Amino acid sequence: MCDDDASGVLAAAPRPVTGTAVDPVSLAPVDEVVITTLMDNTFDGLLAGDDRVRRSRLGVGLVGAPQFEDGLTTAGLRAEHGFSALVRVRRGETVTTLLFDTGVSPDGMVSNAERLGIDLGEVQGVVLSHGHFDHAGGLAGLAGRRGVRGLPMTVHPLVWTRRRLAPPGLDPSALPTLSRHACESEGFEVIERRSPSLLVDGSVLITGEVDRTTDFERGMPPAHQAWDGAGWRHDPLVLDDQALVVHVRDKGLVVLTGCGHAGVVNIARHALRLTGVERLHALIGGLHLSGPAFEPIIAPTVSALTEMTPDLVVSAHCSGWRAQQALATALPEAWVPSSSGTSFHLAA
């Protein structure tokens, strides 16, 4: 599809949205949320933690290696171009565990969970941020490791969209397409919602479609295409993109993104507007600011996030090193590098 296609430009244009939400969401505050990165693009076993950040040990995970005297070596954790996070929410004495995305490979996320001593049998629900394969590839491993009969999986209805990459001058490359039939055959109970969803007795919000209100977050470039039933069309918005939101009592919102295709500023503002909560406490996940199509919006993104004064920013997965550097410079007290196996403890 051409760069100057009128429908694509119109679809990507921001919509002016002001005032409070028409259908506000009453998000119950929680006492604590612990977000553990089960899979990210990097693993650094030498990173230091603090009272809110707990790092995995360098030597976690013994594996066979005959070249050593005892036949073993410490493997650390796997890193791959994908994202997965375990979310534990505590409200009073009740603790609920959700899995947000599953990484790219069938065995990567479950291997890391095993090495970390995490029992995936405790997972009470799965949330997919969107349908791209680097966030849904580990579903097979989850099903094979623990069994998922009746396990609810919350998705946007467009998560099953066929997509491809068609860069100019190159042959198009199909992206793996998630199959609803296959997921249900494995035992997942698929729950489709376009609108916001409340989980865990009203204390976890899944945003559904995100309002696009900024004038700089325009979405994916023309090479990202989707099949509309009649042909391939530019898919700038990735409308199935959604985030997970928790309100930590007396602290503010914790926003967890997969790739942030809706634009991380759009997502944060949408969450604040939906819930009526005035403060962004933490932002964790992929910000999709890597590569030539997105690096031009790093500056306005960082500027907008700085105005929100979050206490914690963890830019993971597809954020890119230039964005990491900019965030670290602008928010030195809030920014923390991500790594597979890191847990973020946020409490009232």
Rank of each mutant, 00 (worst) to 15 (best):
I118N: 03
R322T: 10
V210E: 06
G150H: 12
H81K: 15
V210W: 01
S339E: 07
G252N: 06
L312Y: 00
R279H: 15
H288T: 11
L72E: 09
D201Q: 14
W232Q: 06
L46T: 15
T96Y: 03
L253R: 12
H156M: 05
D101N: 15
P222D: 06
G138D: 09
V190L: 14
S197C: 12
D44P: 03
F68A: 12
N41L: 13
A293M: 06
D23E: 10
A174L: 14
D311Y: 02
D241Q: 06
T275Y: 07
V148P: 03
T177P: 02
G229A: 03
V95K: 08
G263H: 12
H132S: 07
P310Q: 08
V248P: 05
V254T: 13
S195H: 13
V148A: 00
N41S: 15
G231H: 02
G263Y: 06
R145L: 11
R218T: 09
D228S: 11
V110G: 06
M220W: 11
G258Q: 06
D240K: 05
V9R: 13
R52V: 13
E80K: 09
A182V: 15
E80C: 03
G19V: 13
T73A: 14
I35F: 04
G137F: 06
A271R: 01
L86H: 02
E93T: 13
V246G: 00
D101I: 01
I35S: 09
I35P: 04
P300I: 00
G202P: 05
D44I: 06
M1W: 08
M109K: 03
P14F: 10
E69A: 13
W227N: 09
F294W: 13
A304P: 03
E32D: 15
R162T: 00
S339N: 09
D44G: 09
R218I: 14
R145W: 00
L346A: 08
E122A: 08
G61V: 06
G150Q: 09
R180L: 07
S56E: 03
L287H: 10
I297F: 05
V30A: 10
G121H: 10
R55W: 08
L151G: 01
L62Y: 04
T73K: 14
L62E: 10
R322S: 03
E93N: 13
A75L: 00
T97D: 00
S26Y: 14
F83C: 10
W335L: 08
F83G: 04
L98P: 02
T342P: 09
P66M: 07
V110R: 05
V34P: 05
T73C: 10
L151M: 10
A21G: 11
T177D: 01
P337D: 02
G260M: 03
D211Y: 09
T42N: 00
E189H: 13
R55D: 08
H132F: 11
A304Q: 00
A226I: 06
G169K: 09
F43I: 05
G202S: 12
T309N: 15
T73R: 02
L205H: 04
L327E: 01
V277A: 11
T329Q: 10
